[in-house]
């Protein structure tokens, strides 16, 4: 991944935008935008991503502040969970006549 500060429109950094759709839901990534500072990033995010009441709360975070795993699904990073089928409820055979389980 790029660790250098994103080049930007007139040197404005890139921000990632996360929106909470309504109370009770997580913030979800919706896209990115350039802004001169955090306040502008927030107001621009409101204008760009919530024109139709899509959100009750917005987070903006500079793209270069995010640390990410590599995207490959075969990445060894995720292998610790790959072979542990016993972590899933379907691993356990329970007779059909046992109720409520």
């Amino acid at each position: 991944m790029s660790t250098e500060a994103p080049r930007g429109s007139a040197g404005w950094p890139l921000y990632e935008v996360f929106v909470r759709g309504k109370r009770g839901l997580n913030h979800v990534h919706v896209g990115s935008l350039h802004a001169a500072d955090e306040r502008m990033a927030l107001t621009n995010a409101r204008d760009l991503y919530t024109r139709r009441n899509e959100g009750v709360s917005i987070w903006v975070v500079r793209s270069d502040a995010i640390t990410a795993s590599t995207p490959d699904e075969k990445d060894p990073f995720f292998s610790p969970s790959g072979d542990k089928v016993y972590r899933h409820p379907t691993f356990y055979a329970i007779p059909d006549d046992v109720p409520h389980i």
Partner: peptide, 9 residues
């Protein structure tokens, strides 16, 4: 997002 920019992999 540019976090996920470029030539990873």
């Amino acid at each position: 997002m540019t976090v996920t920019d470029g030539a990873g992999g």
